[in-house]
Design a binder for these strands. Structure first.
Lengths: 179, 179
DNA sequence: ACCGTTGTGAACATGAGTGTTCACCTGCTG
DNA sequence: CAGCAGGTGAACACTCATGTTCACAACGGT
């Protein structure tokens, strides 16, 4: 039941970051008092939601073989499927000001950065820094999630959209513009 | 002086979307009363900031020759240079709930969408919808602005980063992965 | 049947942001 | 000099989210 509460909080806070605790409680079908008992302060709730998202990422990240050459594609495909629960991490304002969360996010980024750096020896371009590539991946995920939530993009199309766009770009195959 | 006020408000609200009007006034070096006199309500201020950003976009968009083949590159390069003033439009939460602003943004997107659709006949891939390409462009801008504000990216590098990433992708030239 | 746990609603106090009014000061113009 | 426009700070009332407390109901285990 606590799980459902967190998920509800995620979607409510994602739709309106300024939603009151009363709104969250009502949406979850519980009393505001109950919410306060489980998460004494608003910050606690936000942190719990964020950590829930991070747990979710952890759970898929540990299924990915980071030594594989397809590790990035694999990871991205799995992340796309997670949807709103993780979108929260990229969208919620002021989340980066929580030192504890920031540390966990950075710790989670590190293996991906290492993977990118390694792949820059073979499949990824070397004229862009690894962090830029990482953020480009995130931006692709973000776009997909947003498009899905607006109903513009079919969830099953999302992985293909993200992977082709991020890896190959939006220019048609033959067109090489400015070097 | 009113111009400086809007710019200050932009940066303050961008750094912390929940900043109080008192914070904005203090940052701008004016009294809160003065702020209220110019923008009677908080909504008015936010709308003014957003419209200022839209004016800024208008001013560069009208310098771009949308019939040129390089129109997209030209537009993107100019947009990158605008920085935080426009970043506000993409970052500020709840902005899309203002019908008037949403209409103006859509009206502004339309010619770019048309341009993209036209270029899909030549330089842009046809297997992605125009709106997806548009959002990919925006995501590139967003990444650049964020990286610049964090000091990770030199402003002069930004246009190249955005254009190569968005158009050619992050995969190295030779590597063609999954179709 | 008793009791601890858990959830619930009601009520309250508090603090912050907001919008408004008013008296005062400054600088400029006629 | 008089008057006016624009800016300023102080004070006020109002709203709302928040955090806290309390008494009560439901439920399960002993």
């Amino acid at each position: 039941m606590s799980v459902h509460l967190l998920q509800t909080a995620t979607s409510v806070l994602l739709k309106d970051p300024t939603a009151s605790l009363g709104d969250v409680a009502k949406a979850a079908g519980v009393g505001r008092t109950t919410l306060h008992k489980r998460f004494p302060t608003r910050t606690d709730l936000v942190r719990a939601v964020a950590n829930d998202a991070l747990d979710l990422i952890d759970s898929v990240a540990c299924e990915v073989d980071f030594d594989s050459d397809d590790a990035l594609e694999d990871l991205m495909t799995r992340l796309v499927a997670l949807g709103p629960r993780v979108e929260f991490l990229l969208r919620f304002p002021g989340l980066e000001r929580d030192a504890e969360l920031r540390a966990r996010i950075e710790a989670m980024d590190q293996p991906v950065l290492d993977l990118i750096t390694r792949l820059q020896g073979t499949r990824l371009r070397r004229d862009l820094p690894a962090w830029w590539i990482l953020h480009t991946l995130y931006a692709g995920l973000f776009n997909a999630w947003e498009a899905i939530s607006y109903g513009r993009l079919a969830p099953l199309d999302a992985p293909r959209f993200v992977l082709t766009t991020v890896f190959e770009g939006v220019a048609s195959a033959g067109a090489t513009d400015r070097t």
